[in-house]
């Protein structure tokens, strides 16, 4: 069970973080959050899609790793299989959160449901009431990711304003089973992109969105490779 709790130097003074190079916590994740700052690196090994968050209805960017809920085709017993490992996966079980939407600061939280967070093995998080260097370094990475997610939200809002997102349904036909549809995913509307006015195009350039947009489009080439992993 996921249980996100703010890290506290008192309450968690004896806790440690161990690392799992296999990233086993992703074994059942068919989508994993991705920040726009990761798109270029991710696009060469994972399809990038947009999905609606089920509790807020807001769009999020994700790497698609499976073709149905509960399935991660990029993970095997031997560990993570794709060339790119999303930041969120690497940072787990830590994450950075803003206490309020407006605030500039982050607090560092942990999924206490993760076995990686424990009192027995791994690197110490606190020493003499202060975060260890190890924690500092992990926290920086989590903040980086949170910052990236914020930028991603702004990026998505610009896509929405220009009506550049479009629903994508993937029809899959597993061997020896009924065909089914993977719905709820959105991609970049290439046609619409081609129809943008010069002014709209320049607004994308000014925000440095063009690279990210093309990364998403190019990442679609990873879909057949993902399907091929089914075999």
């Amino acid at each position: 069970m996921t249980n996100i709790v703010a890290l506290d130097s008192q309450q968690h003074q004896h806790y440690k973080l161990s690392e799992d190079k296999l990233f086993s916590h992703t074994r059942t994740a068919h989508i994993l959050p991705l920040a726009v700052t990761e798109f270029v690196a991710a696009a060469v090994s994972l399809p990038i899609v947009f999905v609606k968050d089920s509790t807020t209805g807001q769009f999020r960017a994700c790497a698609l790793t499976g073709l149905q809920p509960g399935q991660n085709l990029c993970w095997q017993e031997s560990g993570w299989q794709a060339a790119y490992i999303p930041l969120a996966v690497r940072n787990y079980p830590l994450l950075a959160l803003k206490p309020e939407a407006q605030s500039d600061d982050y607090i560092i939280a942990v999924d206490t449901g993760s076995e990686l967070f424990n009192q027995q093995s791994g690197q110490a998080l606190f020493a003499a009431d202060k975060g260890t260097d190890y924690l500092q370094q992990r926290a920086r990475s989590a903040i980086n990711q949170a910052h990236g997610i914020g930028l991603t939200q702004q990026f998505i809002n610009r896509l929405l304003a220009l009506e550049l997102l479009v629903a994508r349904t993937l029809t899959l036909t597993p061997k020896g089973a009924e065909p089914y549809e993977l719905t709820g995913m959105y991609g970049i509307d290439e046609q619409r992109l081609a129809q943008l006015t010069a002014e709209q195009w320049l607004s994308l350039r000014a925000n440095n969105d063009l690279l990210a947009i093309h990364a998403v489009l190019m990442s679609m080439a990873q879909l057949p490779l993902l399907v091929a992993r089914l075999a």
Binding site: K52, T55, T56, G57, Q58, F59, L160, V166, A167
Partner: peptide
């Protein structure tokens, strides 16, 4: 309450 906070998406 969620709609007040987040609105609906147009697509």
């Amino acid at each position: 309450a969620k709609i007040y906070q987040y609105g609906f998406s147009a697509l």
